[in-house]
Design a protein around this nucleic acid. Structure first.
Lengths: 200, 200
DNA sequence: TTTTTCTACTAACGATTGTTTGTGTTTTAT
DNA sequence: ATAAAACACAAACAATCGTTAGTAGAAAAA
């Protein structure tokens, strides 16, 4: 083989291809026979490498969750104003996604197909992550960096919506690279689109 | 029956319930037997009212698309600055979604399960809608209302991401009503979170 | 060389999928 | 009263689902 994924373990190859398939068709609509075909093997052969279809989804979702957590923890350590912290949080989030756009899309759109108790665990991680962003935002409101006129939940959920849809439209071969993307996105969300805003 | 949906035609009742089910479980994971059970009938009985599972999805997706289109056309007629037009476009979009949060969620998340040629038609409508927002944004850049430092595609896609995820987290019983939500969302996206921005 | 690990196969399982057919009852329109 | 439309049913269909069992050749480790 000459693929870039050729020196991954076979199990990792399966998971990668599954991520692509889940992203394209959705977890529920993607069959194990579809996946097998993409890999050039029979469906039953998949089970030499993975235990179940859902195990793949679990691995994709929780691995991404760990990356996001790690990134945010770095930012929280920084001793900078809240607006800067928020900015860095946004950039970090974008960079984690950019490292694996496919897995990011699955993480975002397909996690609901996890069964209990994994779904509950996943949602707890997610709430925790969101709340830590909310804390940063609240700090900024307290210090007068952010406006008080915007509902906190709205602000944070809008933030996440913007971030989380990126894997759906971002083309890694495009003119704008992930770092610039994170930069501009942070600027847009913190300072807005208006030209008259004071620079960040 | 004493439901609020009792005086709808039976077909509309089926479609409404299907929207809830599709939103909760996803189109592919939602079975016709699930749907029938929610309505208290047998799966086969559904076919007295609808022709197929996908017909329901089509009806949900294209009806919403028509509403969005109608809303934007109203805004385009207005003779106001681009920033104001963008603002009104955002508010209109939010209001259309708020009228039917369930159908909005399906529109956004499940349209990919449309088969051809419906999928192609749907995506064309969507591209057209996005491009019309992009035109408004470009007008604002040209008149100096918006900054030139932000990638146009990024700006518009971020806008849509923010808007389109709203049905996933917005609680219609919450303290903030749809109009205020549209207002604040428009403010946040146009002027940003920073307190130092000039007021819109 | 022997043993273990990895990888893949064929065949089949029980369950579930969307849907059709044919029938019957109840409500509405004429 | 009669015809028609609306609504629901049981039974079944072919197809597809995730998965298991058992087998076997090839590569790696001992």
């Amino acid at each position: 083989m000459s693929d870039a994924i050729a020196n991954l373990s076979r199990k990792e190859q399966v998971i990668r291809k599954a991520a692509e398939l889940f992203k394209d068709k959705g977890y529920a609509a993607a069959s194990m026979r579809d996946l097998a075909q993409l890999l050039g093997i029979e469906a039953a052969s998949l089970y030499s490498h993975i235990k179940s279809k859902e195990e793949i989804l679990r691995s994709l979702c929780f691995d991404m969750a760990a990356e996001f957590r790690k990134s945010l923890e770095e930012v929280e350590k920084q001793n900078v104003p809240a607006s800067e912290k928020l900015r860095n949080g946004i950039i970090g989030h974008i960079q984690v996604m950019a490292k694996d756009l496919t897995a990011s899309a699955v993480f975002m759109n397909e996690h609901r197909h996890l069964s209990e108790p994994y779904l509950r665990d996943f949602l707890l991680l997610r709430i925790n992550y969101i709340n830590r962003f909310k804390t940063i935002f609240e700090e900024g409101v307290r210090t007068g960096e952010f406006k008080t006129t915007i509902d906190k939940k709205l602000a944070v959920m809008t933030l996440f919506s913007s971030l989380n849809w990126m894997p759906m439209w971002y083309d890694p071969d495009s003119s704008i690279d992930p770092t610039a993307l994170g930069d501009q996105l942070a600027d847009m969300l913190v300072n807005g689109l208006k030209a008259t805003s004071t620079a960040g």
